[in-house]
């Protein structure tokens, strides 16, 4: 970690804003998101559906649906701004330097092509190799993601695989060209619990072996705890809190993060706590509130929270939190604002 801080980050996103222009108006899905990602690091992005976590990554990849547009901000990847690249330059990068896996392996693979073809076409797109070489590489990849009898399975169609196996195929496709960055968008959400663990373990192992950086998008804090180095908590299209996983879990410095942690069951805890859901629903991004987006649901909300959007307060080593409670004059709230200092 300390050495990687010396070299410039692999990806540096700053002030990224993305909107969708619909018939009902402008939906501000992502509002001024900034973060950095170092080579070989696993960054978790966590948030409810609609918090803007997937849209952030789709904006980086240039994969927004036609009504969506990045309206400001930059995303520097190895010195190039992904946002200003044209479609041709982006498609050179996609699947090559940056690759992506999706939530639902049942629908993410083309049902009418063999899985082998879907891996091979990726290799042939980005590498100057013969078809036979690409095929050999595909077998190697299948073995890497532990698909049994790899050579034979290349000829199978997606419907002949189980969900877990399909996600392995997706991972094989993503790893085909040794990417420097892998974006995994809810890679385990659609899978059975036991399969989830296998896939996560595989991802973590491959990351260690191949040394790529990973952005892991999920709404499941458990997944983050097991896998990520650092975590970004998003709400209402904004970064609410950021920090190293252990510290953030031990001492959440935003009421939303605390709410998220309180709403997941902890099996190690045998004092019969009731799970506390966060009341209310996420804000309407057509008309985002003027102040803190979480204020209407926040147990500590103050007049100031509805009046103005809080800035991101730097809170110690690599930690940031967007909450007025971190203002020096704000009332102290036990468990959230203890030893934090504003930047």
């Amino acid at each position: 970690m300390t050495t990687s801080h010396m070299s410039p980050p692999l990806l540096s996103v700053s002030n990224l804003s993305t909107s969708f222009f619909t018939s009902r108006g402008e939906v501000k899905a992502v509002r001024g998101v900034s973060f950095e990602l170092n080579a070989g690091e696993i960054l978790g992005i966590v948030g409810e559906s609609g918090s803007g976590k997937s849209i952030t990554c789709m904006s980086l990849m240039g994969l927004l649906r036609s009504s969506g547009r990045v309206i400001e901000g930059s995303a520097r990847f190895e010195g190039r701004d992904l946002i200003t690249l044209d479609e041709d330059e982006l498609s050179e990068l996609r699947g090559n330097d940056i690759s992506m896996i999706f939530q639902d392996p049942m629908t993410s693979l083309n049902p009418t092509l063999t899985v082998g073809e879907q891996v091979i076409e990726t290799i042939l797109r980005h590498r100057k190799v013969s078809r036979a070489e690409a095929r050999a590489r595909a077998i190697e990849l299948f073995e890497l993601v532990r698909i049994p009898s790899a050579a034979k399975r290349l000829k199978s169609y997606p419907h002949e695989f189980s969900g877990g196996m399909r996600q392995r195929v997706m991972i094989a496709i993503a790893l085909a060209c040794d990417p420097k960055l892998l974006i995994a968008d809810e890679p385990t959400t659609a899978l059975d619990v036991t399969i989830q663990r296998q896939i996560l373990a595989l991802l973590k192992e491959l990351q260690g072996r191949l040394g790529m950086a990973v952005i892991l998008i999920t709404h499941d804090l458990g997944v983050i705890a097991e896998t990520a180095d650092r975590v970004l908590v998003m709400y209402g299209g904004m970064v609410m809190e950021e920090g190293p996983v252990r510290e953030l879990f031990a001492r959440p410095s935003h009421p939303y993060t605390r709410g998220l942690l309180a709403s997941i069951p902890d099996l190690r805890d045998d004092t019969h706590h009731r799970l506390t859901p966060i009341p209310g629903s996420p804000p309407d991004m057509l008309r985002p509130p003027k102040g803190c987006p979480f204020a209407p649901r926040c147990p500590h909300a103050m007049a100031q929270c509805n009046a103005a959007l809080p800035p991101l307060y730097h809170a110690g080593e690599g930690r940031r939190a967007r909450c007025w409670l971190h203002h020096p004059e704000a009332p102290r709230v036990a468990g959230i604002t203890a030893e934090l200092v504003p930047a």
């Binding site: 996609r94 999706f102 993410s108 083309n110 092509l113 076409e121 980005h126 496709i173």
Partner: peptide, 19 residues
């Protein structure tokens, strides 16, 4: 979704569309 996958693999526009 698989059209998104095809794009995310970096395939050219024509390949994505026709294949």
């Amino acid at each position: 979704d698989y059209m998104m996958t095809a794009k995310a693999k970096g395939l050219k526009r024509g390949t994505v569309l026709f294949k």
